[in-house]
Amino acid sequence: MTKDTAKHILIVEDEEYLRDLYLQVLQSEGYEVEIAANGEEAYEKMSQKQYGLVILDVILPKMDGLQVLDKLNNEGKQKNDNIVLLTNLGQDLVVAKALDFGVRGYMVKSDYTPEELVAEVRGYLGDGDVKSEL
């Protein structure tokens, strides 16, 4: 993973306001951010490119997060260890299943302030220098 791809983040979020928020917050932190509004788009992008981090919602139009994970898993094109679930779903089962697919972790959207989210992302990417830029 190069330094460049390490800074590439894909946000998969169907809710427009939240998508804009995450895009704005993370871009202002200096990350290269791409967005996907549904599962299919996310799958397309993830098959074409290796991201440093994929923030994946679960409830999505066309293809939900778990289906995306399942498809990727079956194809074996990439390990899912660069994916973090970001959802407002509270079902332990969904989380357990996602973890079975090899995702690194999960966040409950409502529990995080934008600042805390950035901190989490930084933690996942193992990147210390972005914080100093803030």
Binding site: E15, Y17, L18, L21, I59, T87, N88, L89, G90, Q91, V108, K109, S110, T113, P114, E115
Partner: peptide, 23 residues
């Protein structure tokens, strides 16, 4: 599950944008 999801999604937006406004 859906209800909590549907409730929390707009609340996340409110919370986040309020935070943005304050900060």
């Amino acid at each position: 599950s859906i209800a909590s999801h549907e409730l929390r999604t707009p609340m996340t937006a409110i919370k986040s944008y309020l935070w943005m406004a304050i900060n």
